[in-house]
């Protein structure tokens, strides 16, 4: 196994294994760094949500902690004016393409966007950007859950878990640019797709894009595989 090293996060001395990504070291030690797309079991971090920026001592530009391998003596700050600006901007950009109607959202109790806003003192509204249009209707064809793409933040957790853990392969990314979307083969409804309704994707979803219909949450649910061990 890799050798043990000592690093510093916000001045706190922490031991870790060399080569581990900083984000996981921080989270393990109870230090919050905003993140949405990070999946522990994934070999190469996705690096797509651009929320986990930290300031590394000796570097002028903030770097994403999910891609930062730790080494002996590494010293980082989880907050700095530049980090805060990038996080605030990325967050507002995500919100601009996310249906902001928290009161009616089934995930409001576990929403990771709300958590992020609370931790970093950010508002759940747009200050300078106009909201972008949503193209996709809500898909409630599945028996147990609903897929509402207007609340999707494209973190990719559902796609990964459907493919790698559930081994179903019903969900995938399609298209590109602003039209990039999580969808099924030929965009058929969930009910028409090869989805087995195992519910793993619903648990993995950090926002209200995938949620169980009332009373349909499977009993075995509760452990979030994309985030765990």
């Amino acid at each position: 196994m890799s050798k043990a090293v000592t690093i510093f996060i916000d001045g706190r001395e922490i031991s870790a294994f060399e080569g581990e990504k900083l984000l996981w070291v921080a989270l393990r030690n109870g230090i919050y760094i905003p993140n949405l797309c990070a999946i522990r079991g994934k070999k190469r971090p996705s690096g797509s949500c651009r929320l986990c920026y930290v300031q590394v001592e000796g570097r002028s530009e903030p770097v994403t902690s999910c891609t930062l391998p730790v080494k002996e003596g590494l010293s980082v700050q989880t907050r700095s004016p530049r980090v805060d600006r990038l996080v605030r901007s990325a967050f507002e950009l995500l919100l601009s393409h996310h249906r902001l109607d928290c009161r009616s959202c089934a995930k409001r109790k576990s929403c990771e966007l709300l958590k992020l806003a609370k931790e970093r003192g950010l508002k759940m509204r747009l200050s300078r950007l106009a909201p972008l249009e949503h193209e996709w209707p809500v898909d409630d064809s599945a028996e147990t859950f609903v897929f509402d793409r207007s609340r999707c933040v494209l973190c990719g957790r559902c796609v990964w878990i459907c493919r790698e853990v559930a081994r179903v392969g019903a969900l995938g990314f399609s298209r590109r640019g602003i039209r990039r979307v999580v969808t099924t083969f030929q965009d058929v409804s969930m009910a028409q797709s090869r989805c087995t309704e195992c519910g793993l994707c619903v648990e993995a979803c950090p926002s209200g894009a995938l949620y169980f219909k009332e009373g349909k949450q499977p009993a075995a649910a509760g452990q979030n595989l994309s985030r765990g061990g």
Partner: peptide
């Protein structure tokens, strides 16, 4: 769609990934 499904089956991968590529 049928072609994408057949190719996906031959390559032992989910059809949605072929679809993703074709739309990318």
């Amino acid at each position: 769609g049928l072609a994408m499904e057949q190719i996906a089956a031959a390559l032992k991968m989910p059809a949605v990934e072929v679809y993703g590529l074709a739309t990318f």
